[in-house]
Design a protein around this nucleic acid. Sequence first.
RNA 1: GCCCCGGUAGUGUAGUGGCCUAUCAUACAGGCCUGUCGAGCCUGUGACUCGGGUUCAAAUCCCGGCCGGGGCGCCA
Length: 458
Amino acid sequence: MENSLLYFFRGNFRRNRKLIFNICSQLTIMERNFTGDLRNLPDGTNVIIMGWAQEIRSLKNLVFVVIRDSTGQVQATFKRENFSNMDQLSTLSRESVIRVEGKLNLQSKSKAGFEVEASSINVINVSESPLPLGIIDPVEADFETRLNNRFLDLRKPVKGSIFRIKSSMLWGIREYLHQQNFIEVQTPKIVAAATEGGADLFPVEYFEKEAYLNQSPQLYKEILIASGIDRVFEVGPAFRAEEHNTVRHLNEFTSVDIEMGFSDHHSAMSMLENAVKKGIENVLKTNSSDLQALGLKIESPKVPFPRISYEECRKIASSNGVEIPFGEDLSVEALKFVGEKFHDFYFIVDWPSSLRPFYTMPKEEDDRYTNSYDLQYREKEITSGAQRVHNPDLLTKRFMEKGLKPENFEFYIKAFRYGMPPHAGWGLGLERLLMILLDLQNIREATLFPRDRTRIVP
RNA sequence: GCCCCGGUAGUGUAGUGGCCUAUCAUACAGGCCUGUCGAGCCUGUGACUCGGGUUCAAAUCCCGGCCGGGGCGCCA
């Protein structure tokens, strides 16, 4: 890897020796101004802008170049009277990386009200043309074209906003969990056993053994409860080999998981609604310009979120003419009726045992139901959680009821035999939450490089 | 896994058997224009997913492949 990089530089060096000398000296000696800071500098300041040539408009004695960097954009004006090398600009292509030096003009006639009166330009790296995808073209490309050229797609400021928001939302959630004495952990993604059965796992060749990509950190975070760490959370990839083809499923997504010892589903739900609230509040605090760019007005959700039982949902569906037999999952159609009644966030609690995995704690008073919950936003499921079974005998029984062989999970059950506290937790789909927060129509919009039924490149 | 739909210049589209030498916009190349800012005007380059079939004639109809989109199921 390092060698190939070296050869790349050597090759380029030979071809563009002069250019590289030029760039290196500039990058190290000179400071760089961000376009987002220009407004606050004194008029006439000498500035250096580095970024992409977003737009080039040339008139006879005048060329305008709009430069975009990570903080915004600015127009650089080249006048024949104070810029000798106008011919240099005729070859400039859109999206080339450039460095422009000039004087800041805060009284400019441009619409932005400020511009840079350019005195020099260096083309640091040329962009080929035509572009596979226009950054500022009035026609929006198909999503497939955009994903195939994702690095260009992400140059559009609104696309960047999505991922800045994703980052601060996660930051807010992390901060909250830290305050609540959780520690962040990393568990294996290459595993031997299925979490909840073997159907939807990606097999991987692991030397002489068969292994899988983990669909959830569930078993490992429970084992950590037996380790005495007590409160853990993990942010990591989860892999599902389901052949779904929808706007809200990915085959690789980011799961935010927590598990807490000496705890039940009620305190886990409280932790969840507060984590979501803090994540959103951190977005409100840090991303006002991104939200503005996306044309969104968002409010912090009120906690606690409503709790609605599975049985109530069935009744709501039934009163709208949709019958869900006991023990069957609530269909999208049914959830739409529930979502009409409880918009925004709400919990569906007390799911039947038949719909929940083996590790879910049955209700003491009626074991047809469980101490489980889903966090919903209208008809969309964001999070699934529950109090877990902590008694090893009950756990073994539940394995068998689900048609799973307890001996395949010996490494897991063993952790329950030597003192396992009662515990509860949840797993939250980060992209789903972002999708809901930003009203994105496709979960792939909330993913830099989505992995779906057919896409593994780029 | 099931059902429905689509594939035309770099990008996005119009075109449902002959009027297609394939529309329009944008991008791209060249030219004009002293301040543009969705700049404007002129000129130019550039495309029917692949294979087979039907027909005097196929972008258009039929079959298959490949690629993609949407819905459901399942899930986060």
